[in-house]
Amino acid sequence: MTDRRIVCWFSAGAASAVATRMMLREHPDAVIAYCETGSEHPDNERFIADCVRWFNRPIERLKSDRYADTWDVFERRRYLAGNDGAPCTVELKIMPRLAWQQPTDIHVFGYTADAPDEKRAQRLRDNYFELTIKTPLIERGLTKEACLAIIDRAGITPPPMYALGFQNNNCIPCVKATSPAYWALVRKHFPAEFERMSELSRQLDVRLTRIDGERRFIDEIPDDYPTINPIQPACDFLCHIAEQEFSEAPTP
């Protein structure tokens, strides 16, 4: 037990679920927090309910008091993503967290023992040494695949984004992704969202993808473009902090 509040940051993904479950076994009084974006796969609600039963603890939901979802941010801010990151992360994940967290909190993250996650966790520690951070999955050498296996053995069906071929259970779509394979996969499984983003990116003159090193509009991706290895950034509530060091997205 500790006098400091332990906060397990749950992202409706397999890794954060396993990290939360592990921490609760050691600290049953830990708090579970989830930042809602309003733009994730609808099956996430089923997964969250399954995890609540697995944790035997409620999840505290944090939500922006200014924006309903990512589309609301994009359309009102008239900005998608750029060198300063994406405003959706700032408005829907960072701002609610900053308003809710306490200076003495111990933050638990579901970073896995995969190389990219280990680097992100280390960068976070290096740049934000004032935060007390725990990464139980890295400490135990658990990879993303291992977390999916643990979820499966617990009798919980993972969020469908993984089975559809996406690397992360992000919002649909994630504007920080530049991989044409990612956007081709979005077009395949979520054509309405793809079309909506195609139109909005044209309006805002934002070329979200790269083909052969050149920035292109996503509607320029060939119809037969392969959807294998759909690289996309991991997006938890500290994604923007870890990668952009609190740089604010431009205000139009």
Rank of each mutant, 00 (worst) to 15 (best):
T227L: 06
C239K: 07
F217R: 00
L185K: 05
L208R: 01
F47Y: 08
R196G: 01
D212C: 05
S64G: 04
Y182P: 01
A149M: 11
G165N: 06
T251Y: 14
A15E: 11
F190V: 01
M95R: 12
D43P: 01
R4T: 08
A30I: 05
V186H: 06
M23N: 01
S11N: 05
R57L: 08
G13L: 13
E199D: 09
H27G: 01
N127G: 08
G38C: 12
A242R: 09
I211G: 01
E245D: 15
I241M: 14
E118R: 14
R153I: 09
R78S: 12
P250M: 10
A33W: 07
G13M: 06
F129P: 07
S16K: 03
P159C: 13
D205E: 13
A81D: 07
V90Y: 04
A181N: 06
E139D: 14
E26F: 15
N229Y: 15
L204T: 00
M1T: 08
E45M: 07
M161I: 08
S198A: 15
H27Y: 14
I138M: 05
T37F: 15
I150L: 09
K188P: 00
W54Y: 06
E245S: 14
N169P: 04
Q101W: 15
I221M: 07
T70C: 12
F10S: 00
C51D: 00
E220G: 03
Y128M: 05
P42T: 02
I228P: 00
G13T: 03
D236E: 13
K144H: 09
R187Y: 03
E40Y: 06
P233T: 02
V7T: 06
Q203S: 10
H240G: 09
D69E: 04
I48N: 02
R25G: 10
A30E: 03
D105F: 11
D43I: 09
F129I: 13
